[in-house]
């Protein structure tokens, strides 16, 4: 089992300033899944838990060059690690690269087995090596034992299952504002009802015995199945409008944890260019998809993708 690559300048900045800070918010422990063509950062895919799943996928060229991988599992390697340690290692490598003038510095990453101090058992590490003209700095990030063949197949299956797209997706108008709102909403209750309609309506509501608090965003951009909003809907309240749309089969409704919803919005740290919410078929989960553009264009950068799946607490009406 071997893995060795150089992290490109663009790769360093993607990880250091955008993706690792965002993924750090999703949970402490993350799986890195490396294949011949892709690198995935995965949260909560193996543990059949009630946590939020996040899937960040990079084509190898987006992060690395001189990428070499080999293993007996069709050249696939996966392991778990503490994301804050990885972030620290990348951060300090960045500071070394930028402090040494010359430009001959490259950040190499490789999988190694080493004998840690005061131990007789060799342990696996992901090692970051920065070589300059005058110095070299090596940082070892401890990782879990690489996944066994069975676990790897399980992870691959979970990853394949997590790729299904909702039929209707609506674009979130202003991520920061929505985040702000949801963070304040957290004080009022724990369960969030989310309904999404083919008309482009996103309706969020917390309802307890003492209070009902909701927000409705209308006329959002719809990707996938669309429908024309009925004219008589215009003067109705947000609640009635959602209920009618659900009855007519034009909307779906699920209940998720406010905490998860707020976490999913933290992905704005990865600086996506837009975000879409949708409900997976049969109300299996609430999906949020972040889109990244090729810098300076409005074209989707297909080498990077990020989406989260929020577990549904109550199947709702779907």
């Amino acid at each position: 089992m071997k893995f060795k690559a150089f992290v490109t300048e663009n790769g360093v900045s993607l990880l250091d300033r955008r993706f690792l800070p965002a993924l750090d918010k999703m949970g402490k422990i993350c799986h890195l899944f490396l294949t011949r063509e892709h690198a995935f950062f995965l949260h909560n895919l193996l543990t059949t838990s009630d946590g939020i799943q996040s899937i960040a996928q990079f084509r190898k060229q987006a992060l690395f060059d001189d990428y070499r991988i080999s293993s007996q599992n069709e050249d696939r390697i996966a392991f778990a690690f503490d994301i804050s340690l990885l972030l620290r290692a990348v951060r300090s490598s960045v500071s070394i690269i930028s402090s040494e003038s010359g430009g001959a510095n490259r950040l190499q990453v490789k999988l190694v087995k080493k004998l840690p101090p005061n131990s007789t058992q060799p342990m696996p590490f992901l090692t970051f090596e920065t070589k300059g003209y005058k110095s070299a700095v090596i940082q070892d990030v401890p990782i879990s034992k690489p996944l066994s063949r069975d676990q790897l197949l399980q992870l691959q299956a979970a990853l394949d299952a997590a790729q299904d797209l909702p039929q209707t997706l609506v674009q979130v108008p202003d991520l920061n504002r929505l985040q702000n709102f949801v963070d304040r909403m957290k004080h009022v209750g724990d369960l969030l009802n989310v309904s999404i309609s083919k008309y482009g309506d996103l309706h969020l509501q917390i309802s307890t015995t003492l209070i009902t608090l909701g927000a409705e965003f209308r006329k959002l951009l719809v990707v996938g199945d669309k429908a024309q909003a009925p004219d008589e809907d215009r003067d109705l309240s947000a609640q009635t409008r959602s209920e009618r749309a659900i009855l007519m089969g034009d909307a779906q409704n699920v209940q998720v944890s406010v905490r998860h919803f707020s976490k999913s919005l933290q992905c704005h740290l990865a600086k996506p260019d837009c975000a879409f919410y949708g409900i997976a078929p049969q109300g299996a989960c609430l999906t949020v998809i972040f889109q990244f553009f090729i810098p300076g264009t409005r074209q989707t950068d297909k080498s990077i993708s990020l989406h989260c799946r929020l577990p549904v607490l109550d199947p709702g009406s779907s």
């Binding site: 108008p173 709102f181 015995t209 003492l210 209070i211 009902t212 608090l213 909701g214 927000a215 409705e216 965003f217 209308r218 006329k219 309240s237 947000a238």
Partner: peptide
Amino acid sequence: SLDDCIYAEIR
């Protein structure tokens, strides 16, 4: 705004 609305009912 007409397109965005926040509402609450307190018992």
